[in-house]
Simulated assay, not measured.
Amino acid sequence: MSLEDLNDEVQESYTEFDDELAVSLDRETRNELALLETALEPAETDELVRRAIHMLFQTTVDTGTLDFHLRSGFDVTYDEYLTGMTFDEMTGADQYPSMDDERRYQF
Rank of each mutant, 00 (worst) to 15 (best):
T60Y: 03
R104N: 08
N7L: 02
F87A: 09
T77Y: 03
Y105K: 06
T59M: 11
E9W: 04
V23M: 09
A52D: 06
L40H: 03
Y78C: 07
D79R: 01
Y81T: 03
T83L: 10
L66G: 00
E20V: 15
D79A: 15
T77F: 02
M1K: 08
T59Y: 05
D19H: 13
P42R: 05
E4L: 13
D46K: 13
V10R: 07
A93V: 08
G73Y: 09
T63M: 09
S72D: 15
D26S: 08
T59V: 11
E37C: 12
L70C: 07
D88Y: 03
S24H: 10
M99G: 07
Y105W: 14
F57M: 12
E44C: 05
A39V: 13
L35N: 10
L35T: 09
L36W: 00
L3G: 02
P42Y: 03
Q95S: 10
E44P: 01
T63I: 04
D18V: 05
F17P: 01
Q106S: 14
E37A: 07
G73C: 02
H69Y: 15
Y105T: 11
R71S: 07
M90Y: 07
G84H: 06
L33R: 02
G64C: 09
E41C: 06
R71E: 06
L66V: 10
F57P: 00
Q11M: 12
L33Y: 03
Y96P: 00
N7C: 09
R71H: 08
Y105D: 08
A52Y: 09
T86S: 10
Y14D: 10
E20G: 09
T60D: 04
G73P: 00
L3M: 07
S98Q: 12
E9N: 02
R51I: 14
E80G: 02
S13P: 01
D26T: 09
A93E: 08
L6Y: 00
F107A: 15
V61I: 15
T65C: 06
R71L: 04
P97I: 06
G92Y: 04
L25A: 07
Q106R: 14
V61C: 08
A43K: 13
D26P: 01
A43P: 07
F107P: 05
T77P: 02
T83Q: 07
Q11T: 12
E20M: 14
D67H: 00
G64H: 04
E32S: 11
R30H: 08
D88P: 01
H54E: 15
Y78T: 00
F17T: 08
A34V: 07
A43W: 06
Q11I: 02
E16H: 12
A34R: 10
Y78F: 15
L36G: 00
R30K: 12
S13G: 08
M90Q: 15
T29G: 03
H54K: 11
E20Y: 14
R71K: 15
R50V: 15
L33A: 06
V61K: 05
R27H: 11
T45H: 05
D88F: 03
D88H: 05
V23R: 01
G84I: 03
A43T: 13
L36F: 11
M99Y: 13
R50H: 11
M90I: 11
Q58L: 14
D19K: 11
E89T: 02
E4D: 12
Q106P: 01
L6F: 01
M55W: 09
L21T: 05
P42F: 03
F74T: 00
S2F: 03
L35M: 12
